[in-house]
């Protein structure tokens, strides 16, 4: 960190610390948008559709490879790649729903998706090797002051994340399909009586949630270096964010994503990246013990578990 001029060390230090903190917060918010988008997809799958998808992080990682590989290795144009990735993810979501997520038993779902996660990670290790890959894009940064700056890609991704979440909520509220999904989520039996094919709708909803994963994966690829274990970290962040927001709460997940983004950025900057994960996980366990129904949810909405 560049020191201020020697004239006034005391004031300069405070200023440097202050700008550093502001810069952490700004970056945290921008990162938080991505956290929000990635965890909203999981929150939707797990909270609304009641599918415990523990292969989620691995799917994001695989999407990133699928974005990287055609463009960098085979020279495909970007639009074609995006279409390919979207199509692949929708099919993947549908296949997962038909195989590992078929039983309603929670433990079986967790076990099967955990297994799937290991399969995907190890296949990626085998085919793509564990060598970290990125596009090596040099992002344009917009400087407010010497220390505070915003990456333009980052900003774009943040805005896009917010737009997608709002769009998704609108889709759920306004379209027939969206309303059918909500009906099935609330009461499968009644929805079936009203002429909604609930199994079909659940397949569809799960596939749609995979579109969100695809978009998140493409955006992450523009900013990060991917390796086969990349997804596990993001999956854990999704857990933390969804639990603190209350599982199934989409806007809560986005808001909570921003908070976690800022907190994690501050921990990294002030305490050091060394203790980042342990502190975050410890917070997670404490939240689980104190407010398992989420910070933004009320206790009455969650049934007393035995």
């Amino acid at each position: 960190m560049p020191r201020c001029s020697s004239c006034c060390i005391e004031r300069g230090d405070v200023l440097v610390t202050l700008t550093a903190i502001i810069s952490y917060i700004v970056n945290g918010i921008l990162m938080g948008g991505l956290y929000g988008l990635t965890s909203a997809a999981w929150s939707f799958q797990c909270g609304a559709l009641k599918f415990a998808n523990f292969a989620y992080g691995a799917c994001i990682m695989f999407t990133m490879y699928l974005t990287y590989w055609p463009i960098a290795m085979w020279g495909w144009p970007l639009p074609l790649t995006i279409v390919f990735v979207l199509a692949f993810n929708v099919v993947l979501g549908w296949v997962m729903r038909k195989t590992v997520l078929r039983p309603n038993n929670r433990n079986t779902q967790i076990l099967c998706t955990m297994g799937l996660q290991l399969i995907i990670i190890n296949l990626a290790n085998f085919f793509f090797t564990s060598y970290p890959r990125d596009f090596g894009l040099l992002e344009k940064r917009f400087y407010f002051t010497e220390n505070i700056s915003i990456g333009l890609t980052q900003l774009f991704c943040f805005v896009l994340s917010g737009a997608i979440l709002i769009g998704f909520q609108l889709f759920l509220n306004k379209t027939w399909t969206g309303r059918a999904i909500r009906a099935v989520v609330q009461n499968r039996d009644v929805a079936s009586l009203m002429g909604v094919k609930s199994e079909r709708i659940l397949d569809l909803a799960f596939s749609i949630s995979y579109i969100m994963i695809a978009i998140a994966g493409i955006m992450l690829m523009t900013m990060f270096t991917v390796d086969p274990n990349f997804g596990t970290t993001w999956q854990s962040y999704a857990f933390i964010i969804c639990i603190s927001a209350g599982i199934g709460n989409l806007y809560g997940a986005f808001l909570s994503g921003l908070i976690i983004g800022v907190v994690s950025s501050l921990i990294k900057g002030i305490v050091g990246p060394f203790y980042h994960d342990p502190i975050l996980y410890a917070m997670f366990v404490i939240i689980l013990l104190l407010r398992p129904y989420g910070i933004f949810n009320k206790a009455e909405n969650v049934a007393r578990t035995i």
Partner: peptide, 29 residues
């Protein structure tokens, strides 16, 4: 004791996630 306290209050998904969280703390440290 910590895991058990989570497990006695909540079951299923939450218990699994708490276990993963605590596991990650120890793995990283």
């Amino acid at each position: 004791l910590i895991v058990g306290m989570v497990g006695s209050k909540l079951s299923g998904l939450y218990f699994t996630m708490a276990l993963i969280g605590i596991h990650s703390i120890f793995y990283t440290l």
